[in-house]
Write a protein that binds this DNA or RNA. Structure first.
Lengths: 122, 122
DNA sequence: CTATAATGTCGGATTATCCGACATTATAGA
DNA sequence: TCTATAATGTCGGATAATCCGACATTATAG
């Protein structure tokens, strides 16, 4: 078990990373062009990233995790099973991001209420 | 706030990543040569990585996280990075993460209500 | 202090990236 | 459906990063 990673393992891992990055982007309804501009890379570079043809730098990865509201662990498939935030939570976070501070606080209180009501499940 | 990352931010982030990687390696008492062999890169390449002079690929990062028995989130300083989000949003996302799906949906609808009420700020 | 291991530095060969032009595919509207 | 346009994909060559060995410097043991 835990064999030494081969070059092909790398390619597979890169492809899966690219797929997750693409999924996350489309989920937020962003264009390659927009994300590429955010990362300050060319659009075709993002095409290559999402198809696993270009390496992703660690810093780029953290920036993407922020933009996509996902943990870097999820994007890298760190724990194939237990992901970072559930996708609907990420969606919520995005919608919440441009609410006013007061509204966010009110939403937080409501979240607390829901949590206490159902006893904070797993 | 939440300014666009500059080139210098990248360099700083890379340096900090390198420092954490070096710390993790020394903690395990490994030599650069051993880790480099594990990653199948030259020893001097690891020297450059740990001093922030060479980029770290996402795949390399996950391999190092395994070898060093750390999360990629720790190595990238994810907590530090999620300061990119407004603090209360990150906090909310965390609290929301273990609510049930139904509660999350209800919370999402409430967020929509708040949004429409104040006309989608920011 | 000396011997040796470990790490750091540098230059140029090697390899990956970048980016624009063009091709292909998805999407919206008549 | 057909068409216009947006979005994404592909490719080649200019550009930039990496790689790696030789040598320098620093840490550690004895």
């Amino acid at each position: 078990m835990t064999g030494i990673p081969t070059r092909e393992d790398d390619e597979n891992a890169r492809r899966r990373l690219g797929e997750r990055l693409r999924e996350a982007r489309k989920y937020l309804g962003l264009k390659q062009e927009e994300v590429a501009a955010y990362l300050k890379i060319g659009r075709t570079a993002l095409t290559d990233i999402e198809s696993g043809q270009r390496r992703v730098e660690a810093i780029e990865l953290t920036r993407l995790a922020q933009l996509y509201r996902q943990s870097v662990g999820y994007l890298t498939g760190e724990d194939e099973a237990s992901a970072g935030l559930p996708i609907d939570v990420a969606h919520l976070a995005r919608r919440v991001a441009d609410l006013s501070v007061e509204d966010r606080e009110e939403l937080g209180r409501f979240a607390e209420y829901l949590r206490s009501r159902s006893g904070g499940g797993a």
